[in-house]
Design a protein around this nucleic acid. Sequence first.
DNA 1: GTGGTCTAGACCACC
DNA 2: GTGGTCTAGACCACG
Lengths: 126, 126, 126, 126
Amino acid sequence: MLHIDYTASMPVHRQIEEQICSLIATGILRPKDWLPSVRQLATDISINPNTVQRAYASLEEKGIIVSVKGRGSFVAPDLSAIDRVHKKMIDGMIREVILKSSLAGWSKERIREKFLNILNEGETKQ
Amino acid sequence: MLHIDYTASMPVHRQIEEQICSLIATGILRPKDWLPSVRQLATDISINPNTVQRAYASLEEKGIIVSVKGRGSFVAPDLSAIDRVHKKMIDGMIREVILKSSLAGWSKERIREKFLNILNEGETKQ
Amino acid sequence: MLHIDYTASMPVHRQIEEQICSLIATGILRPKDWLPSVRQLATDISINPNTVQRAYASLEEKGIIVSVKGRGSFVAPDLSAIDRVHKKMIDGMIREVILKSSLAGWSKERIREKFLNILNEGETKQ
Amino acid sequence: MLHIDYTASMPVHRQIEEQICSLIATGILRPKDWLPSVRQLATDISINPNTVQRAYASLEEKGIIVSVKGRGSFVAPDLSAIDRVHKKMIDGMIREVILKSSLAGWSKERIREKFLNILNEGETKQ
DNA sequence: GTGGTCTAGACCACC
DNA sequence: GTGGTCTAGACCACG
């Protein structure tokens, strides 16, 4: 079951996209697995079917899922597309972090130190 | 003089905000320095005064500048709050990058490598 | 025995149509040969009889097969019309490819080269 | 002015996409040229603004145009994307022609001959 | 039942 | 004025 945050600025259809991507990336959804039908998912999270449709259409255009009239939607059998999408997304986010922190007057060393600190937090906690 | 990129997806008022922030962070603008008036800046970069107004209002809300009716706007005398805000924002963005990439199944090593790669790109270019 | 690919975007009834056409074109099925009954074929490839029915109806409309109530379906005795239909269809598709690529600014040489490249791909693979 | 064919099976939003692509490919629309606004184009060709919006959104996702809130939409400054899109489209069409004609029992030689004939028609006509 | 397209109308952020 | 999101409801093709 997906969770929609209506207070977020990210549009609902993009939230659905991202969450399905995550489910695939983490292996919870696997290639050829069936996705909930457009109408089913729409009623589950009580939004308009059109909004789910838009998310599915976008995922299909990116080659992450396949939708077939009358049969339903499922995770694409070949997922080479999804890794490319992830790479691009993460790359963009990293660039934005670096841009923002340099705009704030941070030196490279300070950014690197901060990043590595946070990255290694998990090692002791988890 | 600020530079507006009309082909960018970032709204104009946010571009103004970011650039003023950047001028402050890099020390070109210092606490209590005067900023150009809303109308002056608007005609300088030939955009709608409403747009400049919105940028200034947003900066004032964040405590970065102070606007006084009839006198104009200047950089806030005390900017200690701002660095804390920046830290928090950058911290949040870094955590999100790490979260997203681990959801995508990336190992810590892969994330670190990717980050350092991008961070060091500038060294040869700039 | 026909093979249905459920991950393909082409509707199942069109897949059946194409494969029967192909069997006829290659001479495996010849004029007046009997086809499996709608129900037989449906159970063989475990799909809905409606779907087979639609494929047969479409083939009959095109004059490729003949169905007789109570007796079954067979390849049409005279297939001269079909080759003309094929010619016309392929002719139209070729013209569209050429139109689209010239609209995209491609030179004749580039189009020819591309076409021959793809046409000859099979030579090494198959 | 675009022309919509309501009898075609291709959805309206895809027709808009293709025609704008063609206008760009043929140089009638050039990088940074302004496109008609969503509402303007919608009333011009008397369809729903949502349909135009969908076409524009898809073109933007492919990197062919850029849309900015409050300012409008224009052809992307960098069009490396469009050539890739064209290549992919033409490639797909060629493969389909070859597939269809081999399903119809045509030999490679016959296909090649047919194609080259049609391609060279223009030489004497135009 | 499934996905996909389109219309109509509301609302928002932005300029 | 601009683009973008969402809802509601109709219709089609497919199984």
